[in-house]
Simulated scan of single mutants.
Amino acid sequence: MAEKDRLGREGESLAARWLEDRGFTVVERNWRCAAGELDLIVRRARTTVFVEVKTRSSIAYGHPFEAITAAKAARLRRLAAEWCRAHGPVPGDTRIDAIAVLVARGAEPSIEHLSGVA
């Protein structure tokens, strides 16, 4: 596995645990369809949340949230709609969140959560 892929998987695992610690239940990880992939689908109470996880080892090339462009947000909305179609009626509310994970060498991972990004 390439270093970039390993870092991405580590970030997704850290984000999933972070969300679980805050009362979310992980419904699915790395859901794929022809249009792309959703990193995490989680639920808390009556809200289903589609989570885009961006992981970096430094901010040398910008903050992880900077990678969520308008085009990426539109793609996340399409993927969330596709997941809802594939899984039947989804009770309650839905939203799209983003989590930035910074895994700097020799430091504790840093996690930031933005709610309702798309």
Rank of each mutant, 00 (worst) to 15 (best):
M1N: 09
E3L: 13
K4L: 10
R6T: 13
R6N: 11
G8K: 11
R9Q: 13
G11H: 05
G11M: 08
S13W: 07
L14Y: 11
L14H: 08
L14V: 10
A15H: 07
A16Q: 07
R17F: 04
W18A: 02
W18N: 06
L19H: 05
E20L: 03
R22Y: 12
V27R: 11
V27C: 04
R29L: 04
N30I: 08
N30D: 15
R32F: 15
A35R: 10
G36V: 05
E37C: 15
L40T: 02
L40W: 00
I41L: 02
I41K: 00
I41Y: 00
R43Y: 10
A45V: 09
A45I: 08
R46T: 13
R46F: 02
R46P: 01
T47G: 01
T48N: 08
T48F: 07
T48I: 10
T48K: 12
F50H: 01
V51G: 00
V51Q: 02
V53I: 09
K54A: 11
T55S: 11
S57M: 04
S58R: 09
A60S: 10
A60Q: 11
A60L: 15
G62C: 09
H63T: 01
H63E: 12
P64Q: 03
F65Y: 15
F65T: 02
F65V: 06
E66Q: 14
I68A: 05
A70L: 15
A71T: 15
A71S: 15
K72S: 13
A74S: 11
L76H: 00
R78C: 03
R78E: 12
L79D: 00
A80E: 02
C84I: 08
C84N: 08
R85K: 13
H87M: 09
H87I: 07
H87V: 08
H87L: 11
G88C: 05
P89Q: 14
P89H: 13
G92V: 11
I96R: 01
I96F: 01
A98R: 01
I99K: 04
I99H: 02
V103E: 11
P109R: 08
S110Q: 09
S110G: 05
S110F: 03
I111A: 02
E112Y: 03
E112I: 00
H113S: 03
A118S: 15
